[in-house]
């Protein structure tokens, strides 16, 4: 207990070292978050920053929050972010070119001014002494928090609970799409296909005549051009189709040549 109290009320040299090292990393992580081209990289950098913040919470005597930060923020929320990034398209790179005239300059100006003012404000405040958490943690840290949450902040607690429920329901409402008509059965789909007469047999498979049988490589038509029909629509929308390189076509030609020669020989041997 005394060790806890000491950690909360004093700053050791170790903490100072920890602050300067991890603080630097946190700032770099934050900068990477806003500067990385790909969303997934940004998310990873942010997760790193958050873990460092969790360490800082622990160093400041907020053990409960430190653990919650790791479990809830880094564990749950950031995973949610990554999940959505995957859903939207993990490789889709964000163009960093600015489209709004003067937006970047204004943003830089405002950000710089705001940061200077904030820091000046903190420097201006007389925050020379601090009390430490020794006294309030005397009956146990989590017990102390619990006492506050369930007494003074009980209404806020209840209301945030309601907010969470509402948010969950709201998210479901937002993403849920009601089916307005009955799903067509297999039979109906088949009948429709015959009626339309566009594509009666199953779609051609990808990767035919390709160097390897991958779903992201378009199959080739007899004249050597790639067929749009052979690859999945979703992959095409994401721009994740690999091109059939001219090299592959060369290989194909060579292969045909070879087999023709062999067949010819076989014919000749006959």
């Amino acid at each position: 207990m005394s060790a806890l109290a000491a950690a909360a009320s004093t700053t050791s040299t170790g903490e100072a070292v920890q602050f300067w090292v991890l603080g630097t990393v946190a700032v770099i992580g934050a900068l990477c978050t806003i500067l990385m081209k790909k969303a997934v990289h940004s998310a990873l950098c942010l997760a790193g920053t958050m873990i460092i913040l969790a360490v800082f919470y622990l160093a400041n005597g907020a053990y409960f929050l430190g653990v919650v930060q790791v479990v809830v923020y880094t564990g749950a929320i950031m995973m949610l972010f990554l999940f959505v990034v995957m859903l939207v398209g993990v490789t889709a790179a964000d163009s960093l070119t600015e489209t709004i005239k003067g937006q970047r300059w204004l943003a830089a100006l405002c950000g710089l001014g705001f940061g200077i003012l904030l820091i000046a404000g903190i420097a201006n405040a007389k925050l020379t002494h601090f009390n430490g958490l020794g006294r309030v943690n005397s009956a146990g840290h989590v017990e102390g928090l619990a006492e506050l949450i369930f007494t003074r902040y009980i209404f806020a607690f209840e209301i945030t609970g309601a907010l969470l429920i509402t948010a969950a329901v709201g998210a479901m409402v937002l993403t849920h799409r009601e089916r307005t008509e009955r799903a067509a059965t297999q039979r109906e789909l088949a009948e429709r296909r015959v009626r339309e007469g566009v594509q009666l047999p199953p779609l051609p498979a990808p990767g035919v005549y390709a160097r390897h049988n991958a779903v992201d490589i378009a199959g080739l038509l007899p004249d050597g051009t790639p067929s749009e029909l052979t690859v999945n629509k979703t992959l095409r929308a994401r721009g994740q189709i690999r091109d059939v390189s001219s090299e592959a076509l060369e290989d194909l030609k060579a292969l045909e040549q070879k087999s023709a020669e062999r067949l010819g020989r076989e014919e000749a041997s006959k």
Binding site: I100, Q103, L106, A107, L109, C110, G111, G113, F114, L117, L118, A120, G121, N124
Partner: peptide, 24 residues
């Protein structure tokens, strides 16, 4: 009023900065 949310965000941010400056 160009319709870009980010543009409006800049105004809000600048406004906040001015408020802080005024308070100080």
């Amino acid at each position: 009023q160009n319709g870009y949310a980010r543009s409006y965000a800049v105004s809000m941010f600048g406004g906040t900065a001015i408020l802080i400056a005024a308070t100080l």
